[in-house]
Design a protein around this nucleic acid. Structure first.
Length: 605
RNA sequence: GGGGGCGUAGCUCAAUUGGUUAGAGUACCGGACUGUCGAUCCGGUGGUUGCGGGUUCGAGCCCCGUCGCCCUCGCCA
């Protein structure tokens, strides 16, 4: 990208080529590195676009400028003027885009000096000697200077630009929705904001603009999009941050397939422009049931096999108590896993307990039968299992026997872990799948009530609508919804649904969720009102921008795709947020802290 | 809230069973050097071992507490 020409520069540090030889240019940027030969001084000058080698030769720039150049240090900001020249024979640097040329400086202006920085922005996160993340977060402005971070921010910008262009061309309007809004009773924990003007009342930051975008449809806006921050006050994870960004989309007078088709087009465009990769369409669909049965997950990673095999019936024919009495028995085949040691398989069993398993049964395929582990209990069905699973000599079989929920969870996670360990996940491959026909409701054992699998505004499939009047658990759990998730490489990068646009249906769903008439009126009165006054059929989707960029850049840590992320305790260790506020601010907000001691902020300096 | 890992020079790490003056690479400072691009060569500075207690003749190492970071379970409609 060319420079915006100003008094500071005629070109960027990534721009000049051998065709520019002879030109007088002015470049500005940071001193990336310096090599002082006494007579000659070489500076690699860096800006967003790249590196250019600057040469200070006393014969060209004069003794005074040369003396100044010898004082330059890492990360000083300078501006130079000079002539573009060829590099001599054998002096071309093929690792630099500008490596065929160098600029022979005639002038030097020091714009900013810097003390020795805590680290130099010349590493990659994967380097063995890369600074700790904590340090990078503390000096984020230095970390952002690294080529790797700049490339990620560039991709992130590219993605949002494509989203706006693509959807804009289809007639979507970008409309903002409030950040100071009403606490939502369902879902994640809200971030809350005290009201100064209404003492004792609080706003909540939106977990998503869900209701507002539906109201925009009722408001006749027809096609809405927004790239918007969402807030959920839950513990972060490697792929989760308390504040994150969604591409939020909603359309009127459409059905599921309309949304899926248009959003596929958007994904195709993004992958094409950012990576030069053609996603093959149509992206396959998979029923939720099938995903759970074959992959133990509602976001299956389809880059590799290792599917779950249901051997419940066979298992019930054995005398092995663990199998005989379990509601479900399934297994996966770990290719070439028989070489794992007893200690390793024992470690797997221990690991599986994290996911609720009582244990993990294993055995190794040896010739026509099984060897070690639970072999002696199940050798009578060995032939059938081998036939059913296609297991080969030298493979490891891992079994889970429990309630379906736990069996799927444990084997689903084990499948991913084995693929990681065996490096079966090619990072250059992208396996997309739409997961559809989710159950609308699930019974929450702890709360003793139903909750929405997606959210309470998701429409049930038409053929399941009448089941909303059902009372028994089996009927209610068999209701499927018009929800859909887009999954890529085992990561849910988007999800949406066709919404309920009829007040009576919405009321039935609320009632089923245990929200009585009074509570409905109090919490969702405005939505029911809106549905009453002429709501068009509508539906939409939201994409997780952070996760999409993670996949596009093959980055495993969400903090590395966010310019200013927070730590696992929700802190910004650069600026020291969150921090205590003084009594006057508390009083103005009409709140009082119950914390006796206020610890000092963790800010640097 | 639970489980696990980590915290030593500016940065990345090492330090035997608890034992002399806590080392290395890199960065930094000074010097030499006109074709380097991980420059090279010579010399040098640099430590509250996260913090607070305890045990011991003696603690980077052991014990208790505490703070911070990472992974993970719970949580995330």
């Amino acid at each position: 990208m060319p420079a915006i020409v100003s008094r500071y520069r005629s070109h960027t540090c990534g721009q000049l080529r051998s065709s520019d030889q002879g030109q007088r240019v002015r470049l500005s940027g940071w001193v990336h590195s310096y090599r002082d030969h006494g007579g000659l001084v070489f500076i690699d000058l860096r800006d967003r676009e790249g590196l250019t080698q600057i040469v200070f030769d006393p014969d060209t720039c004069g003794q005074a400028v040369h003396d100044e150049a010898r004082k330059l240090r890492s990360e000083w900001v300078i501006s130079i003027e000079g002539a573009v020249g060829p590099r001599g024979q054998g002096l071309v640097n093929p690792r630099l885009a500008t490596g065929e040329i160098e600029v022979h400086a005639s002038q030097l202006e020091i714009l900013s000096q810097s003390p020795t920085p805590p680290f130099l922005p010349d590493f990659e996160v994967a380097d063995a000697d890369a600074p700790k993340e904590e340090r990078r977060l503390q000096y984020r402005f230095l970390d952002l200077r690294r080529a790797e971070m700049q490339q990620t921010l560039r991709v992130r910008h590219q993605v949002t630009r494509i989203m706006r262009e693509y959807l804009g061309a289809l007639g979507f309007w970008e409309i903002e929705t409030p950040f100071l809004t009403k606490s939502t009773p369902e879902g994640a924990r809200d971030f809350i904001v005290p009201s100064r003007l209404q003492a004792g009342s609080f706003y909540a930051l939106p977990q998503s603009p869900q209701l507002f975008k539906q109201l925009l449809m009722v408001g006749g806006c027809d096609k809405y999009m927004q790239i918007v921050r969402c807030f959920r006050d839950e513990d972060p994870r490697a792929d989760r941050q308390a504040e994150f960004t969604q591409l939020d989309v909603e359309m009127s007078f459409i059905d599921r397939q309309d949304i899926i088709g248009h959003m596929e087009g958007l994904l195709v465009q993004i992958w094409k422009e950012v990576l030069g990769i053609e996603i093959s369409t149509p992206i396959p669909h998979m029923d939720y049931d099938q995903a759970m049965n074959l992959y133990g997950s509602d976001r299956p990673d389809l880059r590799f096999g290792m599917q779950l095999h249901d051997i419940t019936e066979l298992a019930h024919t054995t005398d092995f108590g663990v199998f005989k009495n379990a509601p479900m028995v399934k297994c996966i085949v770990v290719p070439d896993g028989a070489k794992m040691t007893r200690a390793q398989t024992d470690a797997l069993a221990l690991w599986s307990k994290e996911y609720g398993a009582k244990g993990l049964a294993v055995t190794k395929v040896s010739g026509e039968g099984f060897d070690t582990g639970i072999a002696k209990f199940i050798n009578p069905i060995a032939g059938q299992i081998i036939e059913m699973t296609g297991a080969k000599n030298g493979d490891l079989l891992c079994f889970a026997a429990d309630k379906p929920k736990i069996v799927h969870r444990v084997l689903g996670e084990l499948r991913l872990k084995m693929a990681r360990d065996l490096q079966l996940k090619p990072s250059s491959q992208f396996a997309f799948v739409w997961v559809v026909n989710f159950p609308a409701f699930e019974y929450d054992e702890q709360e003793k009530r139903y909750s929405s699998t997606h959210h309470p505004f998701t429409a049930p499939l038409d053929e399941d609508l009448k089941k909303l009047d059902g009372r028994d658990q089996e009927t209610i759990e068999s209701i499927r919804s018009k929800a859909y998730d887009i999954v890529c490489n085992g990561s849910e990068i988007g999800g949406g649904s066709i919404r309920i646009h009829r007040m009576d249906t919405q009321q039935k769903v609320f009632s089923l969720l245990g929200i009585d008439d009074a509570a409905q009126k109090l919490k969702f009165g405005f939505l029911l009102d809106a549905l009453q006054f002429g709501a068009p059929p509508h539906g939409g989707i939201a994409f997780g921008l952070d996760r999409m960029v993670m996949i596009l850049r093959n980055i495993g840590n969400i903090r590395d795709v966010i310019a200013f992320p927070k730590t696992q305790s929700g802190a910004d260790i650069m600026c020291g947020a969150p921090s205590p506020i003084d009594d006057r601010q508390l009083k103005e907000a009409n709140i009082r802290s119950i914390m006796p001691v206020i610890k000092p902020p963790a800010a640097s300096e």
